[in-house]
């Protein structure tokens, strides 16, 4: 499987990774090489095989519904690049985003 420049651009946008000019080709080439190795998975017959999401069987592990203290607001915000009146601040949202 080889990746096209368009696919690289699409994937980079899905992942919100900005690309520098020229990087589409670079990543298309590198990712294609990795996928060429990964494509050997197709050789394996997995028709009757269940997928494994987690190997270790731990059973249903649930939490009792008990409230615990939250972080003080100032501790919650302390690592933020920008805050205002107790809120995190982000730049304008443009709905035309893909």
């Amino acid at each position: 499987m080889t990746l096209t420049r368009d696919e690289v651009r699409h994937v980079a946008m899905l992942a919100r990774l900005g690309l520098e000019p020229g990087e589409e080709d670079f990543y298309a080439e590198q990712l294609s090489a990795i996928l060429a190795h990964i494509d050997r998975l197709r050789e394996v017959d997995t028709d009757a095989i269940e997928p494994t999401a987690q190997v270790v069987q731990v059973g249903s592990r649930l939490r009792e519904d008990l409230p615990e203290p939250s972080l003080p607001q100032e501790r919650a915000l302390t690592n933020a690049p920008e805050t205002k009146d107790g809120f995190f601040v982000v730049k304008a949202i443009q709905e035309s985003e893909p």
Binding site: L41, I49, E50, T52
Partner: peptide, 9 residues
């Protein structure tokens, strides 16, 4: 999904 199945194997 394929990789998850190979993981099982």
């Amino acid at each position: 999904l394929k990789a998850q199945k190979v993981r099982t194997l």
